[in-house]
Simulated scan of single mutants.
Amino acid sequence: MNQIDRLPTEIRSPEPDSVALVSGGNSGIGFDIAQQLLDRGVNVWIGARDLGKGQRAAKEIGRSVQVVQLDVTDPSSVAAAVQQVGELDILINNAGVNPGGEDITGTTIEQLRTAYETNVFGLIAVTQGFLPALRLSAHPRIVNLSSGTGSLTWNNSPNPQFDWEQVQGGGLAYRSSKTAVNAVTLLTAQTLGQGFKVNALAPGLRRTNLIAGMTVGGDPAEAATGAIRLALLPDDGPTGALWSWDGTRAPW
């Protein structure tokens, strides 16, 4: 896999008929990713578990975005979305949940199952479902939304991104699921080879509904810009890595 430390500044201009799917695109970072892809001339599908919320998001965007019902934990929903979307060049696996829980002493097995069903198994199911379409693309790109809190290196050493007095050992369900996303990203990139660009994004702490009542964190649109850089990588761009939202390489 590529060993560069920073993403190239060049962003590839997509073909006019390029198609992207953003799972969980009706809110948060996914909503901003959809808008920014549209700004670049990409044809965008918003995948929403609740079709009504997806349609309201599309109305808010106010442009020719399309909506597909997509519950990443439901095989029949994934299969139906694959049929409805058809051709695909860019897959943004953005859908994710944080079911709460604390450290190993305060997290339930149900919370772990909830996190892994969406963040890991759902991501894999959607990727597998759309692989046949992506294989037909001239520039296939997969971007998996991960988290810096899933980096084992950062979890095992002081890092200014985190308040270690608060988070060390905590958030077991969410954070370990994002560590798994990082592993899935690397192994998928190794399997699919250089024709694909498969990368993970650490978006940083953002004001989204991932954590109920969250009022801290940066603008989701800033993180979305990082996803766009990965979605529109040039053909000689990197694959199989975890990238911070600012384009710097993050450690596994």
Results as ranks from 00 to 15, higher is better:
1 M>V: 15
4 I>Q: 14
10 E>A: 14
11 I>C: 10
12 R>C: 05
17 D>V: 07
20 A>E: 02
20 A>P: 01
24 G>H: 03
26 N>L: 06
30 G>C: 11
30 G>A: 03
34 A>K: 02
34 A>Q: 02
35 Q>H: 08
36 Q>G: 06
42 V>Q: 01
43 N>V: 07
46 I>V: 14
48 A>F: 07
50 D>F: 08
51 L>R: 14
52 G>T: 15
53 K>D: 15
55 Q>W: 04
58 A>Y: 07
59 K>C: 09
60 E>H: 11
66 Q>G: 01
69 Q>W: 01
69 Q>N: 11
71 D>W: 05
73 T>P: 12
73 T>S: 15
74 D>F: 07
75 P>Q: 07
78 V>N: 04
86 G>F: 12
90 I>T: 03
92 I>H: 11
94 N>Q: 12
95 A>G: 12
99 P>Q: 09
101 G>V: 12
102 E>R: 13
106 G>M: 09
106 G>W: 10
109 I>M: 14
110 E>K: 06
114 T>W: 02
116 Y>I: 14
117 E>R: 03
119 N>E: 10
120 V>W: 02
124 I>E: 07
127 T>C: 08
128 Q>C: 01
133 A>C: 02
133 A>D: 12
134 L>I: 09
137 S>V: 07
141 R>P: 06
142 I>N: 02
143 V>S: 02
143 V>F: 07
150 G>N: 02
153 T>G: 05
158 P>N: 01
159 N>D: 10
160 P>N: 00
161 Q>A: 13
164 W>R: 03
165 E>N: 10
170 G>P: 00
172 L>N: 03
173 A>L: 08
174 Y>T: 10
176 S>M: 11
176 S>F: 03
177 S>Y: 05
177 S>N: 03
179 T>F: 02
182 N>F: 11
184 V>T: 07
184 V>W: 11
184 V>A: 15
191 T>Q: 14
196 F>E: 03
198 V>L: 06
206 R>H: 02
207 R>C: 04
212 A>C: 01
214 M>D: 09
218 G>K: 10
219 D>M: 12
221 A>R: 13
223 A>I: 13
224 A>M: 04
225 T>S: 13
229 R>S: 14
233 L>N: 03
240 G>C: 11
242 L>R: 04
242 L>G: 02
243 W>R: 04
249 R>M: 14
249 R>V: 15
249 R>S: 14
251 P>Q: 11
